[in-house]
Amino acid sequence: MNKPEMQDKSMETENNGFNINADENVDGNQHLNEPVAEESETETLKEQIAQLNDKYLRQAAEFDNFRRRTAKERVELIQTASKDLIKDLLDVLDDSNRAQEQLEKTDDIAQIKEGVNLVFNKFRNTLTAKGLKPMDAVGTEFDPDLHDAVTEIDAGEDMKGKVVAEVQKGYYLQDKIIRHAKVVVGR
């Protein structure tokens, strides 16, 4: 038999309803060279895996860069955090230097006193402008969250449990305690 006759016979077999394919899930009339649907699904799944893997690697690299950048910014912030305060205190330092020069040149006590008081007031005003606030402790109830008791003294019944004197002043910075007041408490 020549080739055209064989093709005609195979066509007859397909048309007569004979199932020449031994696989139950695939119709015998289906051409065997056609791609199976499972292969195309596998390829799309492999592509999706590759895309997700690429996306994951990019996000991991982006997060790592973000972490490095924020760490660097934090270090820079810490290094320059006091820059504004120091800059404002330079004016007070200049005034202190001028006051020191005047101390050496003059004997007028009233003038020296006035100059030193001006420097002290400027210093206090600069710190207050930056959020520093002194703690008023004398005459208030002793509070261990605010005060450090240095000693107790007999102060009478009306001052019992209250702060009688301050040994060292306490301070707030933006309403947070930065130094507790060291106090003498009445008993």
Rank of each mutant, 00 (worst) to 15 (best):
N121Q: 15
V36N: 13
G139Y: 05
A110S: 08
R67E: 00
R58E: 09
N53E: 15
V75F: 09
G28C: 02
N125H: 04
A110F: 03
K162N: 07
V26I: 15
A129H: 05
D27K: 06
D158H: 06
L89Q: 05
I78R: 14
L103F: 10
R58C: 02
A99N: 09
P35A: 11
V36I: 07
E41I: 11
Q30M: 13
F142H: 01
L132S: 02
V163T: 09
A60G: 02
E38Q: 14
N117W: 00
G156W: 06
V75Q: 12
L45H: 05
A99K: 00
D136A: 12
L45F: 09
L132Y: 13
F66I: 03
V92Y: 02
Q100R: 14
D88A: 14
D136R: 05
T106K: 05
D148P: 00
N53C: 08
L146E: 06
E166A: 13
G131A: 03
V119T: 15
I78N: 12
L85A: 14
D108K: 08
E39H: 15
M135W: 01
V138W: 02
N97T: 09
Q100N: 11
A37S: 11
K133Y: 08
T128Y: 08
G139P: 01
A129L: 13
K46A: 13
K169H: 06
M159Y: 13
G139K: 03
K162A: 05
G156D: 07
V138K: 06
D91P: 01
D107K: 12
D158E: 14
V26C: 09
N33C: 10
F66E: 04
L77F: 09
R69W: 09
F120K: 15
L89K: 00
A61P: 03
T42S: 11
K105N: 13
V164S: 00
V119R: 07
H147P: 09
E73G: 02
K55C: 04
E38H: 10
D88I: 10
K162F: 06
V36W: 10
Q48K: 15
E62S: 07
A149N: 03
L32G: 14
Q168Y: 05
A129D: 15
A61T: 02
E76Q: 12
S40F: 09
R68C: 01
F66L: 08
E47C: 00
I153Y: 04
D95W: 08
L52A: 10
K122H: 11
T151L: 07
S96K: 07
K130F: 12
F120Y: 14
K113Q: 13
E38M: 08
L146V: 04
M159A: 15
Q48P: 03
M159S: 11
K122F: 00
A71M: 15
P144W: 06
I78A: 10
V150Q: 04
D143Y: 07
N25A: 05
A71Q: 11
L85H: 01
A99Q: 05
D107E: 15
A137P: 03
V119N: 06
Q100P: 02
T106A: 06
V92S: 05
K133A: 09
N65F: 08
N25F: 05
L77V: 08
L77S: 09
K133G: 01
G131H: 00
L52T: 04
D64I: 01
I112T: 14
E166C: 00
K169N: 11
S82F: 11
Q102I: 15
N65Q: 12
K133N: 08
L45A: 10
D107G: 12
Q102W: 04
E41M: 14
E73K: 10
T126E: 06
